[in-house]
Amino acid sequence: MTTQSPPRSGAPTPSRSARPVRRRRSPFLRALPYLIPAVGLYGYFLLYPMLDAVRLSFFTWSGFKTDEPAFVGIDNYVRMFTSDPVFWKAFGNSVIWVVLSLLVPMMLALLLALGLNRKMLGRNLLRSVFYLPAVFASITVAAMWRWLYNPTLGMVNQLLEAVGLEEWTRTWLGDPKIALYSVFVASVWQAVGFSMVLLLAGLQNVPQELVEAAKIDGANAWQVFRNVTIPALRPTFIVVVILTMINSLKVFDLIVGMTGGGPAQSTQVLALWSYTQSFTNHSFGQGGAVATVLLLVSLALVVPYMLWTMRGEDK
């Protein structure tokens, strides 16, 4: 029996000459035709407006098509940093909101996820109950909590009075010292369910053999949680932290619905102030400058965290 091996040199056969061409096409080039529509839409509806907002921050423009934008260099930034009476308040509030969002709802979500990951009666019902606020539109949540906080008829003050804590009653949304935190409570109520579901999904992916092995090695519950559960939840934490950071930086509708940024701009945040400058005050250049700062802050927070966590995964 003889076999015919392919020639090792000389003129390539037609079939051989076709193969190398196919091999040279990178996966990217092969995917490109499928990517173009999505990239086009993404570029037009997301990237272009984003870059245009940055461009606009170097112009002064009233928003009228009939009014030509005038280039002013960095004047909008100078004004924003030096003479805008609200910008720094909005900046500070955004920082407070991000920090609190990373601490309070995440902690509560983790506790709820750990609690509801156990086999217990009514577990699914409780999961649904805690997740339910996450499906409500923010403006609905705002209307509901605004009513709860109503200084005369609201349930919060009435409850406090009913249990003898009249001195604790407050104008929850009308006092600039506590208004931001009052809104934040509503935010926690709404946000915690979503993080809880993500963490629950993560907990169900914790390898049980590792847990068992740790227990056999004598680890107590805390040690199992600290050394097995938490590391296994790392990918989930990455998602939850990034989503929380992004959502907290762009918080807008809840504040609009509950306080409109007031009283006296005390609950103003960067996203809302950018909108207010552009669409209420009709200073699109100023609004663009605030939006640019928000974009840079978002990138400064999210990108390093993503790089750091991805490096961790590679190791």
Binding site: V86, D175, P176, P263, A264, Q265, S266, T276, N281, H282
Partner: peptide
């Protein structure tokens, strides 16, 4: 007032009422 000046007028009126 222009809308931008109105926004500031309101901020100051509210800040006065609140004691800020």
């Amino acid at each position: 007032f222009s809308t931008a000046v109105t926004t500031e007028y309101w901020r100051i009126q509210n800040a006065v009422l609140l004691g800020d």
